[in-house]
Design a protein around this nucleic acid. Structure first.
Lengths: 333, 333
DNA sequence: TTGTATGCGTTATCAA
DNA sequence: TTGATAACGCATACAA
């Protein structure tokens, strides 16, 4: 593992010239370039990124923060990011906020200490204080938000049109002739869950079908308690024939609950989730859902960041992806 | 965001003294230490890790390579690692091999370029050439292998006793009075899958029950094809009453296949998987399985690496975790 | 206990 | 087109 010093010695050139070769400077003759490249190969040259980072101020590191890695959605995004970044000469470093504002801030801080050149961030559910984020924005370190974005002006973001996804899911239930719909809603403080709720409500408003009823129920985080609540709901309300769950996991819980209650899906009640989780395709019946295009989201976010890295004056961009309805057995006629 | 230079100026001390404070040198008086710490707070001191890394040769970065992040097992391990490392002053950087030897080597290479101080690695299924790994070992960069380990002497490793897990799972089926067992086996080139196979075979050998038959079938990676093969197997072999699948995911596929074939689980056939995947608890019936203690594995691996970081002459250690049998409805009597 | 001076490996400025 | 040299921010050997 040699550095440019050894190459300089071997070729008889100066450090400066050798360095220029690896920085693709045009100011070097083809012959010397060849000489250097050959020596580099012979000596197994490995650039010392740390030294380059110190001198140039460019660490070649992109920091990524997600709430949880152990989540099909976020790990799909990470794969998307990786796909794009690996084609550049940047490295990525991944941190998890575990939905905690404190850990998110800690991660942002260690990113700054590591001199990351850019940041990709999906904020935690808990994040309501944007001061750390504002600090980053002020520091001019390029940052792109994805999926869960802060309510701030002039920031780069890539999101899914959650409203549209929920709208499509609800419309799908209506098309399947469901008349008494229930939306199992997520924490409304998280913008995307709120959007899904809105999509549900508006789909029903805009469909001009008569005799349609709509109920929304917001869950806690205690699955057992939640299932009890839902059990009561279904028992006291036997006409329910369509359910839109804000996520596939809760959808699966509901599916199991309905089996326990001997309610057939999709014959009696049709069920649709959100997210296209890996297991949604493995249940019986398979759960209809909305695909979040996570890989594409990661790719777009990474591309946007790379653009900003190349051009510090790039204007903030807002990209919104369209979700895709996935019809499966749980909403079959 | 100030550096030690600003603090030196503010306090009237030299750079060296300020530096010593942050390196916990004993050679500094309590009063000056206080002065420096106060100035650090006032000026929002952020150490430049890059510069420190260059100077000291210590990057404070630990590199982690897993086959896939999007996997309950490996992300559980990552959480375990994170839990331990976050209490130290190290940072972790995560890379995925996507089960490719080439990508694994690339990751190792960029780790070296980034001057990581230590490496945590679970090798890819494809990795048969250990030359890159040997290069790391020779470079004296501490490395700890976990779960999927190379067949090399004198290396640090943390693994699960897969043999024992499979043994326990098979024993459990025998206790439940299964007489005609099938093991659905993974790629035998992957040591842990091979161990599970051995555990299955030996459990049957050692149980001295009479009239027990055992079949093993190795799957491809094409799920559809695999299910056809299994369908044929079950049809031509209607006496099968116990299945041990090498993983929960394939277990779930089998469960669904059996439902299609109108074969009741657990009444007619008992089924046990391996891994305690998140969804194994959400199926109907819930799938019995073997827990891999992933979080603990991550913790132990990280602790072992930190030990090696503190003591470069530490002797290689081999830690083997005991799996835990989880009995659920799919093997109920 | 504190300060001075040097160098980590690279990039960038200036001169040749 | 190339070379000599300073500088990036910090840690450390040595001097005081």
């Amino acid at each position: 593992m040699a550095g440019i010093k050894e190459i300089a010695k071997r070729t008889g050139l100066s450090l400066a010239t050798v360095s220029r070769v690896f920085n693709n400077s045009a100011l070097v003759s083809p012959t010397t370039r060849q000489k250097v490249l050959k020596a580099a190969k012979d000596l197994d040259y490995q650039p010392n990124i740390t030294a380059a980072a110190l001198r140039s101020g460019k660490s070649k590191i992109i920091g990524v923060i997600v709430p949880e890695v152990n989540n099909y959605f976020f790990s799909g995004i990470i794969n998307g990011i990786e796909g794009i970044v690996s084609e550049s000469d940047y490295n990525i470093i991944i941190a998890q906020s575990h939905e905690s504002q404190k850990k998110e801030n800690e991660a942002l801080n260690s990113f700054l200490k590591l001199n990351v050149e850019g940041i990709l961030l999906s904020i935690s559910k808990q994040t309501t204080d944007f001061s750390s984020i504002k600090k980053i924005l002020k520091s001019k370190t390029p940052i792109v938000f994805f999926d869960r974005i802060p309510n701030l002006d002039s920031v780069n973001s890539v999101t899914l049109n959650d409203y549209m996804g929920a709208f499509m899911a609800t419309e799908h239930l209506l098309e399947r002739n469901c008349k008494n719909l229930v939306h199992i809603a997520g924490d409304p403080n998280v913008s995307i869950f709120n959007d899904r709720h809105k999509g549900f409500s508006n789909a029903i408003l805009k469909s001009e079908q008569i005799g349609v009823t709509a109920t929304s129920i917001e869950l806690t985080t205690d699955v057992k308690k939640d299932m009890k609540i839902l059990k009561t709901l279904f028992k006291s309300n036997p006409n329910v024939d369509g359910i839109f769950a804000y996520g596939d996991e809760v959808g699966l819980h509901v599916l199991n609950l309905l089996k326990d209650l001997k309610v057939n899906v999709p014959e009696k009640i049709k069920l649709i989730g959100f997210g296209n989780a890996n297991f949604s395709n493995l249940t019986q019946p398979k759960i209809s859902t909305v695909d979040q295009e996570c890989s594409q989201m990661g790719e777009l976010a990474a591309e946007l960041l790379l653009q900003n890295l190349n051009n510090k004056n790039a204007k903030p961009q807002t990209k919104v992806l369209s979700p895709k309805l996935i019809k499966r057995a749980s909403t079959q006629v």
